[in-house]
């Protein structure tokens, strides 16, 4: 009952956030230099009639508020308008490229979760010892590599020298071939985030390891692995989840760089290209998509919190 009300409350807040975000995304177009009409009429001599005609055709003669409402109603029906550069529906343009980016993000996310958690756990369990130092130094070095440099190194070693993986494109469209093509890009994308997740995991676990309840569990005769699993790792999940939620946006944005480096046509590279060409409808749609993904993931993490930490359901007073 209270859980249902809480979820409903979160949902309301989520919708409000998305509405505000959509306004920001839409009206930011009026703040940046450049006019979509002149892009549409590029190469032609802009006569007054032509400008008026194109403006009317794209609804650009209406007051901004009206334009926003039109756009919003369209978006709610799945219609993001027409791309100025491709002369196609934005949903089609994005729909073609979304699977690549999603594949990239999902693969990188899996690597981040598995490797990041594993490295963090290994370091925390061996804290203060050689293994901990080695992992920490390794992570610090990796974390200092920007993803475009990482991409180039990966291509040079695994694609050019060893020839194990392809260096360019997303393959023939088959599922396995696509995955195969996405291995190097996913690694390039994951590196920095693996470092973040493992450092949070380590510090969160080290914090728990020093707690008295861990000593109590040890004194009751539980094996070390049971203590780590049931008391240390279990209690460390909260901070790890919170950081992971924040990483989602970074992952989507960083994919633009990696897509460019590996010649993948995903929405990251599409975004860069559309900004460059003042293709406002596409830019708006992609930014809205990223914002939505971010907000939804974080809302889900919020809703999960009482299950992660039962104290949070009781309010701040319970600590």
């Amino acid at each position: 009952m209270t859980a249902a009300r809480r979820v409903a409350g979160k949902l309301g807040a989520l919708l409000l956030t998305l509405l505000l975000a959509s306004m920001l995304v839409f009206f930011s177009r009026f703040l940046v230099p450049g006019d979509p009409v002149s892009f549409l009429l590029r190469g032609r001599k802009p006569s007054a009639e032509a400008v008026a005609q194109v403006s009317a055709q794209y609804g650009l003669d209406l007051p901004p508020w009206q334009q926003y409402l039109n756009w919003l109603v369209g978006v709610l029906h799945g219609d993001f308008g027409r791309s100025l550069q491709y002369r196609q529906d934005v949903s089609v343009v994005i729909g073609e490229r979304l699977p690549i980016t999603l594949g990239l993000v999902v693969m990188a996310g899996t690597m981040i979760a598995v490797i990041g958690l594993a490295a963090g756990i290994v370091a925390a369990v061996n804290r203060g010892r050689l293994m901990d130092r080695a992992v920490l130094i390794g992570l610090t070095v990796l974390g200092a590599i920007p993803s475009f440099v990482g991409s180039i190194v990966l291509i040079a070693v695994f694609a050019v020298q060893l020839g194990w993986f392809p260096s360019f494109g997303s393959g023939d469209g088959g599922f396995v071939d696509t995955l195969y093509h996405l291995v190097l890009p996913s690694i390039a994308l994951a590196i920095v985030f693996v470092v973040l997740v493992s450092k949070v995991t380590r510090s969160s676990m080290v914090d728990q390891l020093g707690r008295e309840h861990v000593e109590v569990a040890t004194s009751r005769g539980l094996t070390r692995s049971a203590v780590i699993r049931r008391h240390v790792l279990r209690n460390s999940i909260g901070p790890i989840l919170t950081v992971s939620g924040v990483l989602v946006a970074g992952l989507l944005v960083a994919s633009a760089i990696v897509e460019a480096a590996f010649g993948l046509s995903g929405i990251g590279s599409l975004l860069v290209q559309s900004v460059d060409r003042l293709d406002f409808p596409v830019v708006q749609a992609i930014v809205l998509l990223v914002v939505t993904a971010f907000v939804v993931v974080n809302a889900v993490i919020d809703v999960l919190e009482p299950w992660v930490d039962p104290r949070s359901a009781a309010g701040a007073g319970a600590r």
Partner: peptide
């Protein structure tokens, strides 16, 4: 063994 502070000694998440 029984520890000093039961608030700290019993895992708050279980």
């Amino acid at each position: 063994m029984i520890f000093q502070d039961p608030r700290a000694g019993i895992n708050p998440m279980r």
